[in-house]
Each structure stands twice: as structure tokens, then as C-alpha cells.
């Protein structure tokens, strides 16, 4: 297990990461979410042993890795957000190079390259210089390079940025497969909520250098689950109906748009006994209604705010 304990990183007077605690157990996928400037990249850089924290510790199997990072480096793979490959070299040459810097013996490396190429679906393109690859192929190779030394833990920093839906789907499936088949634990950061929702068992949400929410998907969503949003579709607009609806104390945030009305009610409130008698009184035909549960994105925006970030 990798544990991050009270991790803090200050750049001059700015605390980029402030007292962060997180952990990842073998075989799980953990999402790390946060708006730009939240401190995700700095946290990842520290966990990857690229930069030293100002305070706090990183433990691997209960042992600090700050002074002796090699133990963590041996079991950790990092997929950077940028395409960190030599564009002039072929996929094979890139894999050979990055495999050899992990000091994988030649014969083993050959086998690993074959396996990795299969995992990332680039067996047919291995002799082509990377500069001639599509964005998706580069992303896949970028992941493949991090898998060569069979890491038990993998950090993936926005691995699907700027690629087509097919490649994105392929990468997500590869990540799932990797986790299931090789039992690789993955820290996954992304701005795509649906990816995190699809892949991750647990989620950390960061903002302004701190972890502001943590838990399973359900637990995170439960933050906003005290209310639900109801959307009614009426046959026609009726002002007296709306006015009477407004007078009902249990409804909040009522919004009217022609024949559509939406409002919030407490999670366990039965709204139909309130709405249906009103419809009957005003002779309104209720064509449909829709109950909306909060999404991860709703929670994220609720926690981090809707204001634009730099």
C-alpha cells in the first residue's frame, strides 16, 4: 500500500499542497479530481518521487520512501500528461530504451515489449517512427512505456487528453483490464468525470491544495443526495398552478420554462401527493415527470464552485 501522510509542498510563499492524506491499496483504482491549480500535479510529482515534499511523508508498505525512493520507483509506473516519447524513434526503439533504463534484462525486455504492444494494441505499428503516429496511438504508447517494468502501482495523469472517442474507449478498457488482470493499483486523474465514474473505486477531490472530499463514488455523490431534482412536463402553461406550487413549503428552487417546471425536494419526500391534486384542481394534464439524481460532476461543481479557474 502507498500512503501519503500530511503531505505539504510550498513554493516560496504559496502552499501548493497543504496537509494531504491519501492512500492506495493494491488492486484498486483511485480517482484524483480537482480544478486547474488544485495541487493534483504537485501531489502526483511528490508521490512519483520527482520532487521532495516540504513536510509530510510517503510510505510504501509502512516504510518512508523520501530518502530511498528507489523502492517506490521499482514498483511504480508513471504515465505523464505530456507525450514523453522520442518522436524520431519507432515504438520498438522507444520501448527498448525506456525498458533498458529500468534495467530489465534483454531477454525479459523482449518478452515485455511483446506483451505491452499487445496490451496497447500497437503490434502492427512497432517499426513506424512515433512522429507518424496519430494522437491516440501516441497516448497508447505513452501508457505502454510505463508498463514495461510491470509496476504494481500506476499513476495516470489525464491519459486521454485530446484523442478521439475510439482511442479513449480503448484506453479506458485497457486500464480496466490492467487493473483486473494484473491487479495493478491505479491513481487516475482526469477532467472527464464520466471516466473517473466508470473506472474508479474511490475518489479524492482536491481544491486549493487540500483534499476536500473523499470516499467511494456513492459516498461522494451522497454529499448532494439530501435533495433530488424533479422535472415536470405539463400539457400547457398555467400561472395559477405555478403560483399554488410556489406556496408549497417543501419545494425549493422552482424554475418555470413554458410548460416545463423543475424544483428540488428533500430526498425522501414523496412529491406526487403534492403535485397530482394541484393538477386536478387546475385541470392540468401532467404529461411526464423525471427524477434526477446528482452526478459526480454536480458534486464536483458543488464542492469546488462554478467560478472559472485560471
Amino acid at each position: 500500500m502507498i500512503e501519503v501522510v500530511n503531505l505539504t509542498k510550498s513554493f516560496k510563499k504559496v502552499k501548493a499542497v497543504n496537509d494531504v492524506n491519501l492512500y492506495i491499496e493494491p488492486g484498486e483504482i483511485v480517482g484524483l479530481l480537482g480544478p486547474n491549480g488544485a495541487g493534483k500535479s504537485t501531489t502526483i510529482a511528490m508521490v512519483s518521487t520527482l520532487i521532495q515534499p516540504t513536510a509530510g511523508d510517503i510510505l510504501l508498505q509502512q516504510k518512508s520512501v523520501l530518502q530511498h525512493p528507489i523502492a517506490l520507483r521499482n514498483v511504480l509506473g508513471v504515465v505523464p500528461q505530456d507525450i514523453a516519447l522520442y518522436e524520431e524513434l519507432t515504438a520498438q526503439e522507444n520501448l527498448e530504451f525506456f525498458g533498458s533504463i529500468h534495467k530489465i534484462p534483454k531477454r525479459k525486455l523482449k518478452e515485455r515489449i511483446e506483451t505491452v504492444l499487445q496490451q496497447i494494441g500497437l503490434q502492427q505499428e512497432l517499426k513506424k517512427p512515433v512522429k507518424h503516429y496519430s494522437g491516440g496511438m501516441k497516448r497508447r504508447l505513452n501508457i505502454g512505456v510505463a508498463l514495461l517494468h510491470e509496476p504494481q502501482y500506476l499513476i495516470m495523469d489525464e491519459p486521454t487528453v485530446g484523442i478521439d472517442p475510439q482511442s479513449r474507449n480503448y484506453i479506458l478498457e485497457t486500464v480496466k483490464k490492467l487493473n483486473k488482470e494484473a491487479n495493478t493499483a491505479i491513481i487516475y486523474t482526469s477532467h472527464y468525470m464520466e471516466e473517473v465514474e466508470y473506472l474508479c473505486d474511490r475518489i479524492y477531490i482536491m481544491d486549493k491544495g487540500q483534499i476536500i472530499a473523499t470516499g467511494t463514488k456513492e459516498e461522494i455523490k451522497a454529499i448532494l443526495s439530501s435533495e433530488k431534482t424533479i422535472e415536470l412536463k405539463l400539457e400547457k402553461h398555467s400561472k395559477p398552478f405555478v403560483e399554488e406550487l410556489l406556496q408549497q413549503g417543501v419545494l425549493s428552487n422552482i424554475q418555470v420554462k413554458e410548460s416545463h417546471i423543475s424544483f428540488n425536494v428533500a430526498k425522501h419526500t414523496d412529491f406526487l401527493p403534492i403535485v397530482l391534486p394541484l393538477c386536478e384542481t387546475h385541470g392540468i394534464v401532467l404529461k411526464s415527470f423525471h427524477v434526477q439524481e446528482p452526478t459526480l460532476e454536480d458534486v464536483f461543481l458543488h464542492l469546488t464552485g462554478r467560478a472559472l479557474r485560471n
Binding site: S48, T49, L50, I70, V78, P80, I101, K103, V145
Partner: peptide, 8 residues
């Protein structure tokens, strides 16, 4: 960074 987090 890839080189730094390797065994080199």
C-alpha cells in the same frame, strides 16, 4: 521525469 523515476 521518466528518466528520473527509472532505476538510472
Amino acid at each position: 521525469n521518466r528518466l528520473i523515476v527509472s532505476r538510472i
